[in-house]
């Protein structure tokens, strides 16, 4: 490994800044979330035989629609209802956003460069931090004095438990194969053998389905069901806070697909460390983002194909088929590790 160590202060600080604020961090999040929400609306429009967003910036197919929406949200009046628990109501979406974004700081995203916060079992740390975000979604629903929000947060609680356990089991089952909990070493192990998707397809399938549920994408978009519960846990939000609440799902989708493409799709894999740090940083991140973007596009494409599961159907699916498949993933990993690939 050619990690830039924590002691080489100048390069280290510049890289930390770029990691957090530009390429896998906030800048990339902003651009990708805007483009992904536009793509979601556009794809839904095309499948439903209409145009989709087009009027804002016609030359590039209406891609700046969400920028216009954000300007409108930020100019709108932000109403805090009288009976809400004010501190929880204001803090919960911000904390959910925070805990969704923090794992990026632990993720190695380029060959030969350590992430800003480097600890050995960073896969475990990422899973621990990212599992905190749904708790604040539940707090949101309970704090805003509204029955739709309360029902939405209850649904979120049910589904969170029934899908995060298979997700964590299936992600950790790959650690049996790779023999490490360090994402950098996981990518290196994949470069020596096959991609994680081919090594353990069960784990990849379970993880992707669970990502669809955890980030609220379509067959499982149950806690924010527009036609039943106005906006689910975020019903009482308006103005800029509504924009934040709407963005949380997409930001979580971005972070989860980054994790998925590191663990199962080999991260930056076609390239390996060349020694030129600038080249490695840019190309590695871009390859990783392309992989994550394709996964995000598939996730938003499902909106236009699938209807919404009922809550009992989704919970039953999570505790039966998905949990059994995640057990199969663990068994498959053990078989590969102990018998086929020592």
């Amino acid at each position: 490994m050619v990690y830039i160590g924590p002691l080489e202060i100048p390069g280290r600080l510049i890289y930390d800044f770029l990691h957090i604020f530009i390429l896998p961090g906030f800048g990339a999040i902003l651009v990708l979330v805007i483009l992904i929400i536009w793509a979601e609306r556009k794809i839904a429009g095309l499948v439903q035989l209409r145009y989709g967003p087009l009027h804002v910036s016609r030359r590039i197919g209406g891609a700046l629609q969400l920028v216009a929406d954000l300007i409108r949200y930020s100019l709108q009046e932000f109403i805090v209802p009288e009976n809400v628990d004010k501190i929880a109501y204001l803090m919960a979406p911000a904390l959910a956003l925070l805990f969704a974004v923090i794992p990026i700081a632990f993720m190695p995203t380029a060959p030969g460069i350590a992430p800003p916060i480097y600890v050995e079992p960073n896969l475990l740390l990422i899973l621990a931090v990212i599992s905190l975000a749904p708790i604040f979604v539940i707090v949101t629903g309970v704090a805003s004095d509204n029955k739709f929000a309360f029902i939405g947060s209850l649904r979120e609680a049910f589904l969170m438990i029934s899908y995060e356990i298979p997700f964590i089991i299936s992600i950790l089952s790959t650690a049996f194969i790779y023999g490490t909990l360090d994402l950098y070493k996981i990518v290196e192990a994949q470069s020596k053998a096959f991609l994680g998707v081919l090594l353990n397809p069960f784990a990849a399938l379970v993880a992707y389905i669970a990502i669809l549920r955890i980030t609220g994408r379509f067959p499982f978009e149950i806690s924010e069901a527009e036609s039943e519960l106005v906006m689910g846990p975020y019903t009482e939000y308006s103005g800029l806070m509504y924009g934040v609440a709407m963005g949380i799902g997409y930001i979580k989708l971005y972070v989860y697909t980054l994790l998925f493409s590191i663990v199962f799709l080999g991260g930056w894999l076609p390239i390996s460390s060349t020694g030129n740090i600038v080249f490695d940083y840019i190309l590695g991140n871009i390859i990783l983002l392309i992989k994550a973007s394709i996964l995000m596009l598939i996730a938003v494409f499902l909106r236009s194909v699938y209807p919404r599961y009922r809550i009992d159907q989704a919970v039953r699916l999570g505790w039966s088929l998905i949990l059994i498949l995640s057990g199969a993933a663990v068994a498959w990993s053990l078989i590969i590790r102990l018998i086929i690939w020592r």
């Binding site: 794809i43 095309l46 499948v47 035989l49 209409r50 145009y51 087009l54 494409f301 236009s304 194909v305």
Partner: peptide, 19 residues
């Protein structure tokens, strides 16, 4: 089948509405 039908409309748009 459902996924392929959706994908067909994405790559080859068949719009019934007018701009």
């Amino acid at each position: 089948d459902a996924l392929l039908t959706g994908f067909k409309y994405v790559v080859k748009p068949m719009r019934l509405t007018i701009d």
